[in-house]
């Protein structure tokens, strides 16, 4: 769960995506293969090596008006192609806080 703010070198060990926050409202979004942003993780573009990751991140960062704070995050891809967050941080970003309070909307 090392903060992606501390991400210095782009080196991925498995399937990854690029995620960010949408600029106008801040919600969590994922970079799609169609060079857009989606709030649905299943629509995220998957990269599998560092060169692909670098390229996807560069393209995402260039879309500064659409989303902010883009970074590479690990995911798990099931045999059925379903994409799941690759760590707790991304799971919390996708499904909400774990504190079971009024924050869950």
């Amino acid at each position: 769960m090392t903060s992606p703010l501390e991400q210095k070198k782009i080196k991925i060990a498995g399937p990854s995506i690029v995620t960010a926050n949408r600029t106008w409202d801040g919600i969590v979004v994922y970079r799609t293969a169609a060079k857009g942003w989606s709030a649905d993780l299943s629509e995220a573009a998957i990269v599998r090596n560092s060169d692909e990751a670098k390229a996807l991140l560069a393209e995402s960062t260039a879309d500064d008006v659409g989303a902010v704070g883009a970074y590479i995050a690990p995911v798990q891809v099931g045999e059925d192609g379903k994409i799941l967050p690759g760590n707790l941080r991304e799971q919390i970003r996708r499904t909400g806080v774990t504190i079971g309070s009024q924050a869950q909307v």
Binding site: M1, T2, S3, G69, I92, V97, T98, I99
Partner: peptide
């Protein structure tokens, strides 16, 4: 903690709860 904060490495609030 990690439930909200982009700097956090671990959760705080559930521990408190």
């Amino acid at each position: 903690g990690l439930d909200y904060c982009s700097l956090a490495n671990a959760r705080s609030i559930p521990i408190a709860q």
